[in-house]
């Protein structure tokens, strides 16, 4: 990332492999934005590593001209942890799907978040299993009819943002494939963050779950169905920017803004550094025609990273024990001489 290096273009991060996603798949847009961010931030390809699990989205590393590993289903956060702990010098990214991260890999995800390993976890949420051709996933809505739920599901979905916050993530955001500028901005800030960054990206699977997020991307509906959170600003939305969120009895409600533009006293003002606020606003997860869906950075705090704490521990241990040679180590504390 040093200034002396040649500035690269997004295309310099593109590998020679032709992406093999279905035409129209939301994954293309994300690939493009990631490449743009890497170039804008001045990375060199050999300093960056992409890990992925299994799923359509997890093909991602093949299309990057960086180091990468297409691993096994659900394990990418664990694999990435091993690398980052040993190689804090590298920029480490995890690409995962809703099944990969939240079904088979749920355990590794929460522990990577809890440990605050400095890496960027991008969850491509299409609310479906794409690669295995259309079964429901842990984020599919209740009663959804899919190949594996012909009578509808009987299980409620995860709210990934809430899950990440509860697991102790230090950077939690949500964005959407169609909003490329928002997406790029979020990805950049995620990478700026020192510590684990969790970014949920709503991604349209136009083959098995087309239109899952249409309520949030449709230009006409969007102003009513979405709130783009900004740090320190009141949560205002609506086609005429005439609605806002207010806090009543500890809960969020939608209120109308008076024609004179004066905001209610209890208007919700977003604060990225407040876990309480982040948790509260993350609970907005209802049907799009009833509750607006928040996007943006929910939470961002700085805490020591896992790898940094391990390094400091090692230094402390070395200081405490002094110089111990390998020979000394083998001797241990109790020895005797046979003459």
């Amino acid at each position: 990332m040093a200034d002396t290096k040649i500035a690269l273009k997004p295309a310099d991060f593109q590998s020679s492999q032709e992406p093999r996603w279905c035409p129209g798949c939301g994954d293309y847009a994300i690939l493009k934005q990631v490449q743009t961010v890497l170039a804008e931030k001045g990375y060199q390809p050999h300093e960056v590593v992409f890990f992925s699990g299994i799923g359509c989205s997890s093909r991602f590393p093949y299309y990057m001209n960086t180091y990468g590993m297409h691993t096994i289903h659900g394990r990418a956060p664990a694999i990435a942890t091993g690398l980052k702990v040993m190689r804090p010098d590298l920029s480490v990214w995890v690409i995962t799907g809703d099944g990969d991260a939240l079904a088979i890999g749920g355990n590794h995800l929460i522990h990577a978040l809890r440990r605050n390993v400095d890496m960027n976890i991008l969850l491509f949420n299409n609310e479906i299993y794409g690669l295995t051709k259309g079964q429901y996933s842990p984020t599919s809505e209740l009663y959804k009819v899919t190949k594996s739920s012909p009578w509808g599901t009987a299980e409620s979905p995860f709210n990934p943002v809430l899950l990440a916050l509860s697991a102790g993530a230090t950077f939690v955001a949500r964005t959407i494939d169609r909003e490329v500028k928002h997406q790029r901005d979020i990805l950049k800030q995620a990478d700026d963050h020192k510590g684990v960054s969790f970014v949920e990206i709503y991604q349209n699977c136009n083959v098995f779950n087309d239109g899952a997020f249409a309520d949030f991307t449709d230009k006409k509906k969007q102003p009513e169905t979405t709130i783009f959170l900004k740090h320190g600003e009141p949560a205002i939305f609506g086609t005429n920017r005439d609605k806002c969120l207010v806090v009543e009895n500890g809960k969020l409600k939608v209120a109308h803004i008076k024609p004179d533009g004066e905001l209610p006293e209890n208007v919700y003002v977003h604060d990225e550094t407040s876990l309480e606020k982040a948790l509260l606003v993350a609970t907005l997860f209802g049907p799009a025609d009833q509750v607006p869906r928040p996007f943006g950075i929910f939470y961002r705090v700085t805490k020591p990273t896992y790898e940094e704490q391990l390094r400091q521990q090692r230094e402390r241990a070395k200081r405490k024990m002094g110089e111990v040679s390998l020979q000394d180590l083998l001797y241990g504390s109790e020895t005797w001489q046979v003459k």
Partner: peptide, 30 residues
């Protein structure tokens, strides 16, 4: 205990994570 020998030793969340993170570390040259 042997942290003072400049090694990394950690406790994983399960054996799947243990071997997986070992694979990641091996990829990184450890």
């Amino acid at each position: 205990k042997y942290r003072y020998m400049d090694i990394v030793a950690i406790q994983a969340e399960d054996e799947i994570a243990a071997i997986s993170s070992a694979i990641g570390a091996a990829f990184g040259g450890s």
